[in-house]
Design a protein around this nucleic acid. Structure first.
Length: 191
DNA sequence: TGCCCGATTAACT
DNA sequence: GTTAATCGGGCAA
């Protein structure tokens, strides 16, 4: 069985952790799969929620690493982030897509009749499939309902510009599993 | 206080 | 390609 991630895994630079998270297995209440796409958000980055300082929404980002930051996007969807770096850095990794592996029936039920490729291909879709909401904001990642298992074997990673942002668009802080068909959007050029 | 916009998605034309 | 759904934060007044 792969190694369970500890909180110290998250205490490094947000781009390093983002890269390390590709291939990691994420389970929430026993449902989930392999992480295939993430994006890094550093507090000095105008696109980050923490850029303009703490608010009630982003408070968790200013706390210690290894905790879940869940926020509402466009007033509709939930998005899951992992807080990284030493406490106070207010940096986090947005989990954008996973490859559905465990609990497919539960994911399909929550998402409706979506085909498997689209079950978790996007931050909003992923949270809906796993049943993650605002109620889980601030939970530790090394204890139930979360389970995170280190990747095993060789992992080929591709990078590119982040998606659906309007600031700091040039930063190549999107990371993906090379060749995965479960990405929210392809990386270009897809090698 | 009010208005605009966004780390999105699905359902249109 | 375009647009609605829907709400917290930023910023102008």
């Amino acid at each position: 069985m792969p190694e369970l991630l500890s909180l110290t895994f998250f205490s490094h630079s947000v781009n390093k952790v983002a890269r390390q998270l590709i291939g990691t297995t994420l389970l929430f209440k026993g449902v989930g799969g392999r992480i295939v796409e993430v994006e890094a958000y550093h507090h000095t980055d105008p696109a980050a929620h923490s850029f303009r300082g703490p608010t009630s929404r982003n408070a968790v980002m200013f706390g210690p690493p290894g905790y879940a930051y869940v926020y509402r996007s466009y007033g509709i969807h939930w998005c899951l982030n992992f807080v990284c770096e030493p406490e106070g850095s207010a940096s986090a990794v947005l989990i954008r897509a996973i490859e559905p592996q465990t609990g497919l029936a539960a994911m399909r039920r929550r998402r409706g009749l979506a085909d498997e490729r689209l079950l978790c291909a996007g931050p909003g879709r992923l949270c809906e499939a796993l049943g993650i909401t605002h109620a889980h904001n601030g939970l530790a990642l090394d204890a139930p309902p979360f389970e995170l298992f280190a990747r095993t074997g060789r992992t080929e990673i591709v990078t590119g510009p982040r998606i659906c942002i309007t600031k700091a668009v040039d930063k190549p802080w999107r990371y993906g599993l090379k060749g995965s068909r479960f990405l929210s959007k392809p990386f270009s050029p897809e090698a």
